[in-house]
Design a protein around this nucleic acid. Structure first.
Lengths: 121, 121
DNA sequence: CCAATATTTCAAGAATTATTGTATAGTTAA
DNA sequence: TTAACTATACAATAATTCTTGAAATATTGG
């Protein structure tokens, strides 16, 4: 997870519509939804949804697969986990005592040491 | 953590400059830095840094305290932790098996149950 | 008070992003 | 093949965000 990717992912999440789309797709994992279903569920014009889906796909926040005439979108939960790891590393980095309550820091850092593999921590 | 706050925070992190500022302040926690130090460290015009600092402060991603003629900025690690919790809840929500590797899911969900207090999970 | 310093506000323009209707491309089923 | 359907591409406009220099505000030290 480099800065460029992190920035792009945050950009992808920094819109009410895109956040709605992502949360909808997480709820529908692993099946996902086709574009029309997303458009209907959020009551938005198909072109607008398509615009945001394209941006989110480019950012790798979601994936798309073709199913005949449908385009099925799924949340990319792997990259989301990487983003959480990145954010956790940013937050904890050298300063766990200011990031977490005392009673929580042990649980957090234990899980971090398991979840973070490559990062220095 | 409601959607509005989450969106605002993602917006705050969705710029290379603001991400640089935040990472710089995390590294300097808990002392923080005054505006001029940030401007110098990142080699950016003071007005531009001020613009971003204002946005980040409004979003509560950072805090500011006055020290004479200086304005000292600090990373708000508490809200960052809330954001990580929110993102974790979004990511895991109902679908831990698609979010984490099998060997990691136990560690993750254990820490989540400790870290998440109000959210249904 | 005055001069120097630190930071923000303001204003203007540049750049980017968002929204929507229309048109196009691709797919399916009869 | 044709008609219906799904989704995206395109184009135009609207809206927002970014960047920067100049001016304004506030504080300190002499």
């Amino acid at each position: 997870m480099d800065k460029q990717l992190a920035t792009t992912l945050f950009e992808s999440l920094a819109s009410g519509i895109r956040l709605d789309i992502f949360r909808l797709l997480v709820k529908q994992a692993p099946t996902g939804l086709v574009a029309g279903e997303i458009s209907t569920a959020l009551a938005l014009p198909p072109t607008n949804v398509s615009f945001h889906l394209k941006a989110m796909t480019y950012a790798s926040l979601i994936n798309v697969t073709q199913e005949g005439r449908y385009q099925r979108y799924r949340a990319n939960l792997t990259v989301m986990q990487s983003l959480i790891d990145y954010l956790t590393a940013e937050c904890c980095a050298g300063n766990p005592e200011f990031c977490f309550d005392n009673e929580k820091v042990t649980a957090c850092c234990d899980s971090n040491s398991l979840l973070l593999s490559t990062d220095s921590h």
